[in-house]
């Protein structure tokens, strides 16, 4: 009940916002690098979730800087979409795993004709339980 303004309504200190934006960009970039360099399908989707994280952080930082709650509302929607996407993606991954008995994304290269880049160095293993 004091007369001081709550923290949300005081102008944000610029380094905080800058660092937050920077971290958001870095998280997004890391998520992209991970998506492009991992070959395990589930981990690839995990990295896309990392990109969502970056986006959400940017939203929150902007909301803080502009003192507008719309950014935080948007983060809620990000969460919604991430959840929906995770559910469906993981379901699909399970189905794909059941078909080829491996989580490697290289197993699904039927559309290609040319050189296939780095191959799985070891041959696919013995039959696995699903």
């Amino acid at each position: 009940m004091t007369g001081s303004l709550p923290a949300a309504f005081t102008p944000a200190s610029p380094p905080e916002i800058s660092i937050a934006m920077l971290v958001s960009a870095v998280l997004f970039g890391l998520g992209l690098v991970g998506f492009l360099s991992r070959r395990n399908m589930i981990i690839m989707f995990l990295c896309t979730e990392l990109m969502f994280q970056g986006a959400a952080l940017a939203m929150v930082a902007a909301a803080r800087d502009l003192m507008d709650t719309s950014g935080q509302v948007f983060v809620i929607f990000i969460l919604t979409v991430a959840a929906a996407e995770a559910a469906l993606a993981l379901g699909l991954v399970v189905l794909l795993y059941r078909c080829r008995e491996t989580l490697s994304a290289d197993a699904w290269s039927d559309l290609g004709e040319g050189p296939r880049g780095v191959h799985d160095p070891e041959p696919p293993d013995q039959p696995e339980q699903g």
Binding site: V26, G29, L36, S37, R39, I43, S104, V118, P121
Partner: peptide, 27 residues
């Protein structure tokens, strides 16, 4: 194996670098 060895990390890192650089410049 497919968890241990990354696929073409160089191009991936390059793409990431481009994105982060551009975003940073924007920020």
């Amino acid at each position: 194996g497919y968890d241990r060895i990354a696929r073409e990390p160089a191009s991936a890192v390059f793409a990431g670098f481009v994105i982060v650089a551009v975003l940073g410049a924007a920020i």
